[in-house]
């Protein structure tokens, strides 16, 4: 099972990103652990400087923007 991390301090764009991840998982009928990371130290440790950011199994896929649904699906299918 994949782990999807959504990095963000809780801003509107971060919530939107998390929602998109959940929609993507539902559409693809995949199970994954979705973790919201709002701790700044944890963000730093992951190398995130711009939020929202998305990481799948620890690898940052996008940072500083809300990815598109299609993009997220692509990462989940990898």
């Amino acid at each position: 099972m994949k782990t999807v991390q959504v990095f963000g301090p809780g801003c509107a764009r971060c919530k939107q990103t998390e929602q998109l991840v959940r929609i993507a998982l539902k559409d693809l009928e995949l199970e994954a652990e979705v973790v919201k990371v709002s701790d700044y130290q944890a963000m730093a440790a992951a190398g995130v400087m711009a939020t929202p950011a998305v990481a799948i199994d620890g690898a940052i896929k996008a940072s500083g923007r809300i990815p598109t649904l299609a993009e997220i699906k692509g990462w989940l299918k990898e």
């Binding site: 301090p9 700044y40 730093a44 400087m49 500083g64």
Partner: peptide, 16 residues
């Protein structure tokens, strides 16, 4: 590109 919401991670990234 800058977002005031990510001012903190950016600050940490710069300073460290």
């Amino acid at each position: 590109p800058f977002c005031s919401c990510s001012a903190v991670p950016l600050f940490i990234g710069f300073v460290t």
